[in-house]
Amino acid sequence: MTVLALTVVGAGRPQAGIDDTPPRERLAQGQAIAKRDCGGCHAVDRVGDSPLPKAPRLRDLHYRYPVEQLGEALAEGIVVGHGPMPEWVLDPHEIEALTVYLKSLEPDAPARVPRR
């Protein structure tokens, strides 16, 4: 078992409110974060297998965790049961965007990431 260590940055510096970002933009940001930080090991889209077989597909996380509550866990670190998890830094806006994207992967989610 490995510990996923994430650090929330930005305490004490002024930032625009998370709700200032349009929902489709936030969703696209979350997808980009998932691909950038998770895609090397996890399947990050609605289809496909994880490059690292022991790494759960992100679209299946809702079976293991209440995704809407992952923000706090992402900020504090998550205990996971597969190979080495890297440490990386996410700010509160990135955590929010990633959570929005993870919610969009649930089978009954109406939101879709815009194609570019």
Rank of each mutant, 00 (worst) to 15 (best):
L70D: 04
G40V: 02
A43I: 04
V100H: 14
A32N: 13
T21M: 13
A75V: 00
P107C: 04
T7Q: 14
P107H: 05
A5R: 14
D91T: 05
T2D: 11
P22E: 11
P51Q: 08
D108Y: 13
G30W: 01
V100F: 13
P23L: 04
D108T: 15
G40P: 00
E76Q: 15
Y63M: 05
D49M: 08
E87Q: 15
G40K: 03
P56G: 06
S104R: 06
A55K: 11
H93M: 07
G10F: 15
I78H: 08
E68V: 07
R64F: 05
R115S: 15
Q29P: 00
A73S: 08
L58H: 00
P23T: 04
G71Y: 10
A111C: 02
A16M: 12
D37F: 04
R13C: 05
V113R: 01
S104C: 10
L58F: 00
H42F: 06
V113K: 02
V79W: 05
G81F: 10
E87N: 14
L52Y: 06
A43G: 12
V79G: 09
R13I: 13
G71L: 10
P66L: 07
L98C: 09
A16E: 14
R24Y: 04
M1S: 14
A111Y: 06
V79A: 13
T7F: 09
L52W: 06
A34M: 01
V44Q: 00
E72N: 13
D91M: 12
R13S: 14
V9Q: 10
D20Y: 04
R24G: 04
G30V: 00
A73F: 04
G71W: 07
M1R: 09
P53F: 09
V79N: 11
L74Y: 02
V47E: 14
Y101C: 01
G17Y: 01
I33G: 05
D108C: 11
G71R: 12
E68T: 07
A32T: 10
A28L: 14
G39D: 03
P51S: 10
T7M: 12
V80L: 13
R64M: 09
V89S: 12
V80H: 08
A75F: 02
G40D: 02
E96G: 11
V67L: 08
R57A: 10
R59V: 10
L27K: 04
V100I: 14
A73D: 07
E87S: 14
R59I: 03
Y63L: 14
L102W: 03
A16I: 07
V9I: 11
R64W: 05
V9Y: 08
G12M: 13
A109E: 08
V8Q: 15
L70N: 05
D37G: 00
R36E: 11
Q15W: 03
A11S: 12
G10Y: 11
L102N: 02
E87G: 12
T21I: 15
P14T: 10
W88S: 09
M85F: 12
L58I: 00
R26I: 08
I18R: 07
M1F: 08
D91N: 15
L4T: 03
D49G: 08
